[in-house]
């Protein structure tokens, strides 16, 4: 059990530091955003699982030979208020740490979900007051504002795509179709759930630079996935032009400076540029065999810690 706990700790460290760094710098995710997104989720889950699992296994050593036996024995001791004779301080500390970490991560997830749900509801009520439906596009509303804006508000019961008058003037019909297809892809593929999970991970570990990097990488991948849906509705150049127009227009519009300037410190360089470049110079999608390898690796990442935890 000690060996398994050391292996899990090593896995957790690898998944917390070098692996996300390498993946964030790799070029292939742009060629297979969906597959890369699966890998990111697997890395995050496996990282958490191995970190907590390693602590639990180490802490349970004095209670029994494996997780199940040790777990039962632990509960028995917990209710009896006793400790096994060979238990030491560092093992109990590891168990406390595991409990704290698990609670912290779950609580942060809950908090992020509740907060964003509240924001979403408030935003939706404001949008309903301020906007009118767009003819011929159910679920799409138009804000009477000159700056070009497009976003979607995913909801549990109903979702809305919000556009602005400024956007309608800025873009022609086919560009607009690209924007709507892009937003509809976000809604159909439930991207907000993935983003929410990584957001909560980041807010749970704000001092952990990798979490920030992962959140950014996942945000870009989600945009690329939606772009891939949108380029089916129009052509690559139309979509790229729409992105560039909205991107450069939104940044220069004096009417709504907070739109782009408020979080100046948080602007990640190059979130939009790569999307445009990717559309203007299309590369071959990753081969299906390479994608299969990545998916296999993603599965292995989840299976290995589980096996180490349960079977050893």
């Amino acid at each position: 059990m000690f060996t398994a706990s050391v292996v899990l700790a090593a896995l957790a460290l690898t998944l917390a530091w070098p692996v996300p760094l390498i993946l964030a710098r790799a070029a292939w995710p742009a060629r297979a955003p969906g597959t890369a997104l699966v890998l990111w989720q697997s890395i995050a889950l496996a990282g958490g699982l191995s970190m907590i699992g390693s602590l639990v296994l180490y802490g349970l050593i004095p209670f029994g030979g494996n997780l199940i036996e040790g777990g039962f024995e632990f509960v028995r001791h917990l209710f009896a208020g006793t400790l096994p004779p060979d238990a030491n301080f560092s093992q109990m500390f590891a168990l406390c740490l595991a409990a704290l970490l698990t609670g912290h991560l779950l609580l942060s997830l809950l908090l992020t979900v509740v907060r964003s749900e509240k924001q979403r509801a408030r935003h939706l009520s404001l949008v309903n007051l301020l906007s009118a439906p767009l003819e011929g596009n159910p679920g799409t509303r138009v804000l009477d504002h000159p700056s070009p804006v497009a976003y979607c508000l995913p909801g549990t019961t109903s979702s809305v795509t919000v556009l602005s008058e400024g956007l309608l003037t800025l873009l022609d019909e086919s560009q607009l179709r690209a924007v709507i297809a892009h937003e509809n892809a976000h809604l159909a593929q439930q991207h907000h759930l993935v983003l929410l999970a990584f957001k909560s991970w980041h807010s749970a570990l704000p001092w952990f630079p990798i979490a920030n990097r992962a959140e950014t990488a996942v945000a870009v991948l989600v945009e690329m996935l939606a772009d891939d849906q949108a380029r089916r509705a129009t052509d690559d150049r139309t979509l790229a032009t729409a992105i560039a127009l909205v991107g450069s227009g939104a940044a220069t519009d004096p009417g709504a400076p907070e739109l782009t300037w408020a979080n100046r410190g948080e602007i990640e360089p190059g979130l939009v540029g790569p999307r445009v470049v990717r559309l203007l110079n299309p590369q071959h999608p990753l081969s299906s065999s390479a994608r299969a390898v990545v998916l296999l690796a993603a599965t292995a990442l989840l299976v290995i810690p589980t096996v180490l935890l349960v079977l050893i």
Binding site: V149, P154, V272, G273, V276
Partner: peptide
């Protein structure tokens, strides 16, 4: 976190790049 923008935050440098691309 609650909404997904078509184009998120754009830095001035990036806006410049986009304009050049256009």
């Amino acid at each position: 976190a609650a909404l997904a923008r078509f184009v998120g935050q754009v830095s001035p440098e990036e806006a410049e790049t986009l304009r050049a691309l256009l």
